[in-house]
Nucleic acid binder design. Structure first.
Lengths: 211, 211
DNA sequence: TAATAAAGCTAACGAACATTAGCTTATCAA
DNA sequence: TTGATAAGCTAATGTTCGTTAGCTTTATTA
């Protein structure tokens, strides 16, 4: 039932995204996309009916991938809510590894990384992309982590209101370092070191609080 | 000695920045800049010799402003180091007001706000702007706040290494909320509320630690 | 084997772009 | 009053862009 995608068609998407991620939509010429793929510009129109059509296909693919990932997170989230031991019991070390892992995934996953950059450079001229950026990199992560911290705090003195602040304080430094490395890949090591110290300090501060 | 700037020349800069902030450099046409100013495209060339020249003039003006501001911060910083009472003595409330004040300045100051957006959308295709972005919105703020937290921690158990993490944890949430409001001005109230709660929590966590 | 469709190519078109040439008008010093 | 300069304008130029037309070739299918 699901249509098979021609390899060239897929490569056009990939190379276009690579270019859009750096320059944004408008400054990228169809000739440049074609050259990256290894064909001539008019040949692109055998696969997509316009430049905008390529852009839309990228958006569609991203939405598909994000929903798939959100669905798997949902499962993990539910499991976590049921099964995971409390904050203190997770252990600082595994929390560090989780943070670093997510950081490295978003930094190095080809599609995720380039799509994030494209959203970044297009966010102010496209209301749809603006909303998508906020959902993917602000509201969804903050909501999700609020939920986790909220669950952890139930048996504790932490109130629900504070869970959002905890989420903000946990997430923002990691995200800031992610965008730093987007610009300067050579500072990845430094960022990882800072993330480790940040998580350690964060755990210490919020665990110290309950004793 | 200092050359007087024609009002039209200044308006060109201002309107060009407004457009560059949203679309980036390339997609903005000189005709669009001219129309925003209220003249025809060829008339622009009486004031600047090319489109790139307008862009460079914006960069130059921004560097001037930033250096002026940095110089005044330097003075405040030195004064702070000499005169300001310790962290706990500043008072949570005035710390909140300071944070909100800086946040609102960067969010609403016309030039600062638009220039930040322009850096955001141009950062991946211009190495110079990339470095400038990192300096202005990562290294300089983190260094400065590290210095402050470092001074405050001298008489305390906090080590210098931790001052950078403190700075990161203090600054990142505020900056994240700033970029959120850049996209969604209608969420300013929510952001201010979160900043207040964040600073309160931050102060409580790091003060609780020393007792 | 013959017919069809898919996927590449060159050539060309019309629109939009940055920029230049050259004109007009107003300001202002000599 | 005259001459020059500044700052606007229209018209035009050469380039680049997205897209289309129409051809060739290869692979698939009847």
């Amino acid at each position: 039932m699901t249509q098979q995608i021609s390899p060239t068609k897929q490569r056009i998407l990939s190379e276009a995204l690579t270019l859009f991620a750096v320059k944004g939509y408008e400054p990228v010429t169809v000739a440049a996309i074609a050259e990256a793929v290894g064909i001539k510009a008019p040949s692109l129109y055998k696969h997509y009916k316009s430049k905008r059509d390529i852009f839309d296909a990228i958006l569609t693919e991203m939405k598909t991938r994000y929903q798939r990932q959100a669905a798997s997170m949902q499962m993990n989230g539910t499991d976590a809510a049921r099964d995971t031991p409390l904050f203190a019991d997770i252990g600082e070390e595994s929390l560090i590894e989780m943070s670093k892992g997510l950081f490295l995934y978003f930094l190095h996953d080809d599609f995720a990384c380039k799509f994030r950059k494209m959203l970044t450079v297009e966010q102010y001229q496209n209301a749809g992309l603006s909303a998508l950026y906020t959902k993917q990199y602000f509201d969804d992560p903050i909501d999700y982590q609020s939920m986790l911290f909220g669950l952890l705090g139930k048996t504790d003195t932490l109130v629900a209101e504070n869970a959002r602040i905890m989420a903000l304080q946990f997430y923002a430094p990691v995200f800031l370092l992610l965008t730093l490395c987007d610009r300067h890949p050579n500072r990845e090591e430094e960022a990882l070191r800072l993330i480790e110290q940040h998580v350690r300090q964060f755990a210490r501060l919020y665990q110290g609080e309950r004793s």
